[in-house]
Amino acid sequence: MLNDTSLMSGTSACPGCPENIAMRMLSMALGKDVALVVIAGCSSVTQGLAPKNAYGYASLNIAFAAGPPAASGMWRAYKRRNRDVTVVVWAGDGGTSDIGFASLSGAAERNEDFIYLCVDNEAYMNTGGHRSGSTPHGALTPTTPEGKSGNKKEIPFIMIDHNIPYVATASVGYPHDFIDKVREAKTIRGFKYVHVLTPDPYGWLFDPSRTAEVAKLAVQTCYWPLFKWKDGRIEVSPESLHCLKKETRRPLKDFLSIQGRFKKIDEKGIEDLERYIDELWERISLNLKR
């Protein structure tokens, strides 16, 4: 039986929360002997109120940009104390791509020995779903009521460009792929970056029962690629292999039409998004492991 003790029932999260799903999968991958650094975001709140904490892991809550530095101090402290502990930074897409990016980049450049896990719900969901650097083109948010103009920041590629030992993308719709990648990350020394897509019912505007379904559709329509980067090459996960050829991709509309946040997008906007996806896969193809 897989360990799922990282999350205790009765959290403060919204029903259908994809970050909670990812948190449970984290312990399915890593088991015990984990210390979490939780930066500001939904997760700061969903842990619930003192004197309790919904996370079953030893965890240090901290300000936005301080996650990677705190983890840098922690893994060194455990090493000095001869403790075998996997340190994981748990961060949202805002804390990763925007306000916390400098410290993420700094820790990656120093090749600090921990796992950085970005749970990407593509907006500042904790404040009410406001646009982030990770919000896709055309998405409605309270700060982009006309639809965001401009594409999602491609953090996994930016992390690849840091030449760290391991970068992987995942989706909560494909648990085994996600769990395998986190497990693999644990075996590697140095900086590991794992970016998991966590579709949010309240920000993306779909019924909360469909969280896993939307997470799968993102992959099937090739909007979100599943791959890992190791030894200087990208390896596309089986779930995403069909995306390498444009003809075998599931139509993007299947992913867009299920969500309210794209309700104002026009044909031009959809074409822009499709071009973004074409370019994304061209870039992946250029770096493929052969």
């Binding site: 240090l60 530095p69 922690m74 455990y78 104390r81």
Partner: peptide, 8 residues
């Protein structure tokens, strides 16, 4: 702070 919190 991270190192201190982790015991060093």
């Amino acid at each position: 702070l991270g190192a201190g919190a982790a015991g060093v």
